[in-house]
């Protein structure tokens, strides 16, 4: 087994040792948004996520997941498909919320990163409904759409109290039944001070952690083994800048659709999805 890597702490130490005034090229402190990211990605965030397994419960029931190896394949596939789509939606939502929150419209003119997004072409409520429709078009399974909206609604409710923001209020008004979770996450991330990349990271990460935790609970897997799987996943590979909502990634996962629909029809179930 690998012991604690001896090289890594030195590298991290060098980074962490920088004076807090040190800034990145953007002019922001290097730690900008990180606290919000940690809070949003924490499984203890009281937003209902703990009751969703992302198809893992049904996969455990049918035997598609029975141990760490197939759990690893499940998580990799989930990240590469649903995770990629969630990350793109969260990125876009966070960027749009940033654009809406800028007091000065001029700052959205060409040259500013927000200018290429679609947020500026519409009023905020219309824009949120449009992005939500783009999410809908990427989620064929009604069971998954319902689970996504439920989680989104709970997250908005929670985030509004933690990080009150105009964008969260507007989103809640625009999609009263609950926006899809990655959109809620992106807007909450903006309210929490995160960048679009951080919002996308939170979405990519939470797209697999619920399933991993569910497998630990349901199969009694060694939690350290499972956390190692989580640590080895290529989160960065599913995060990219997005500037055209209609062209956002749309990676489908037919097995997840089947699992989600079967899950709703399974009599004994512990998780909502």
């Amino acid at each position: 087994m690998d012991g604690p890597a001896t090289g890594a702490p030195a590298v991290n130490g060098a980074t962490l040792g920088l004076p807090p005034t040190q800034t990145a090229a953007s002019g922001m402190p290097l730690t900008h948004g990180l606290a919000g990211l940690l809070l949003l990605a924490d499984s203890r965030l009281p937003a209902g996520g703990h009751a969703h397994s992302g198809g893992a419960e049904e996969a455990c029931r049918t035997g598609a997941i029975s141990g760490p190896e197939d759990l690893a394949r499940f998580l990799r596939g989930r990240l590469a498909t649903a995770g990629r789509v969630a990350a793109a939606l969260a990125w876009s939502a966070c960027e749009a919320a940033q654009a809406f929150s800028r007091p000065d419209k001029e700052s959205r003119e060409p040259g500013s990163p927000a200018s290429s997004g679609q947020a500026r072409v519409a009023d905020p409520e219309t824009a949120w409904r449009l992005l939500d429709a783009e999410a809908d078009a990427r989620i064929a399974s009604p069971a998954q759409r319902l689970a996504g909206r439920t989680q989104g609604r709970l997250l908005i409710r929670t985030a509004r109290r933690i990080w009150p923001s105009t964008a969260l209020e507007t989103l809640a008004r625009a999609v009263p039944d609950g926006a899809h979770h990655p959109i809620a996450l992106g807007v909450a991330a903006q309210a929490a001070g995160c960048t679009p990349d951080q919002a996308a990271m939170a979405a990519a990460y939470t797209s697999v952690t619920g399933a991993a935790t569910a497998a630990v609970r349901l199969l009694g897997l060694d939690p350290v083994t499972v956390h190692r799987l989580l640590a080895e996943l290529p989160y960065d590979s599913v995060i990219a800048e997005q500037h055209d909502w209609s062209a956002l990634p749309a990676h489908a996962a037919p097995a997840l659709d089947l699992l989600a629909e079967q899950h709703l029809r399974t009599e004994v179930r512990l998780f909502v999805s």
Binding site: G55, A59, A64, I65, D70, R73, F74, L75, R76, G77, R78, L79, A80, T81, A82, E134, A137, R138, A140, P234, S237, S246, L248, P249, A250, H251, A252, A253, P254, A255, L256, L259
Partner: peptide, 17 residues
């Protein structure tokens, strides 16, 4: 809107895909 990727080691053989 849906995309399928076949031959991607991340997704091939995944019980999720």
């Amino acid at each position: 809107r849906q995309e399928f990727v076949v031959g991607d080691p991340e997704a091939d053989g995944s019980p999720a895909v």
